[in-house]
Deep mutational scan, measured.
Amino acid sequence: ETEYTFDDKREADRAAKEAQNNGLRVHVTKDGNRWKVRID
């Protein structure tokens, strides 16, 4: 399990989409004014 934090939602969405394309499970959550992408 890996977690990334992004300031920009577009960057978070791009990272999530890339991980999904690689067959990974992805969870995107909002943390204040930042975005967390957790990859299982």
Rank of each mutant, 00 (worst) to 15 (best):
T2E: 10
F6W: 02
R14I: 10
R10M: 12
G23D: 03
T5W: 15
F6L: 02
R10V: 12
R34K: 11
A12R: 02
A16M: 07
G23W: 03
Q20M: 14
D7L: 11
A15Q: 05
D7Y: 11
A19W: 13
W35Y: 04
W35D: 00
T29W: 15
D40L: 15
E3S: 08
G23L: 03
A16G: 03
D31P: 01
D40H: 13
L24V: 04
D31M: 09
E18F: 09
E18V: 11
I39E: 03
F6K: 01
A15Y: 15
D31L: 08
K17W: 12
T5N: 05
V37F: 01
R38F: 10
F6Y: 09
V26M: 02
D13M: 15
T29A: 07
D7P: 05
A15L: 13
D7G: 07
D40M: 14
R38M: 09
V37N: 01
T2G: 10
D13K: 07
Y4Q: 08
E1V: 15
I39C: 10
I39H: 02
N33A: 06
V28A: 02
R34E: 04
K36G: 03
E11F: 05
K9L: 08
Y4N: 04
Y4E: 05
R10Q: 13
E3N: 06
K17R: 13
D7W: 09
K9G: 04
F6H: 02
H27F: 11
L24R: 08
H27Q: 12
W35H: 00
V28C: 09
Y4C: 13
A15H: 08
F6E: 01
G23H: 05
R14N: 09
A15K: 11
A15S: 04
L24P: 01
K9F: 14
R34V: 08
N33H: 08
V26A: 14
A16S: 05
T5E: 08
G32N: 04
K30E: 05
F6M: 02
V26C: 03
K17F: 11
T29E: 12
Y4R: 09
D31N: 06
L24D: 03
A16K: 04
D8A: 06
A12D: 01
D7V: 10
W35A: 00
K30L: 07
R14H: 09
H27G: 04
K36T: 07
T2W: 15
G32D: 04
G23M: 03
A19E: 02
K36A: 05
I39S: 03
Q20C: 15
L24C: 10
A16N: 02
H27V: 14
I39L: 06
E11Y: 05
K30Q: 12
V37T: 02
N21W: 08
V26F: 04
E18G: 04
R14D: 08
A15I: 13
A19L: 15
R25H: 13
K17M: 13
Q20H: 10
E3L: 10
V26E: 00
A16W: 04
A15M: 14
Q20L: 13
K17V: 10
W35T: 00
K36W: 04
E11L: 10
D7E: 11
D13H: 10
K9C: 12
N21D: 13
K30R: 12
V28E: 01
R14P: 03
E18M: 12
R25W: 05
R38L: 10
N21Y: 08
A12G: 01
R25Y: 06
F6I: 02
D7S: 11
E11M: 10
T5H: 10
N22H: 11
N33R: 05
R10S: 13
K9A: 07
A16V: 11
D8V: 06
E18S: 09
R25T: 10
R10Y: 12
T2R: 14
R38K: 10
K17G: 06
R34I: 07
D40G: 13
D40A: 12
G32C: 03
R14V: 07
K36H: 08
R34Y: 09
E1D: 11
K17S: 10
N22Q: 13
W35P: 00
V37Q: 00
I39R: 01
D13F: 15
T5A: 06
K30D: 02
R25F: 06
G32F: 01
V37C: 08
D8S: 15
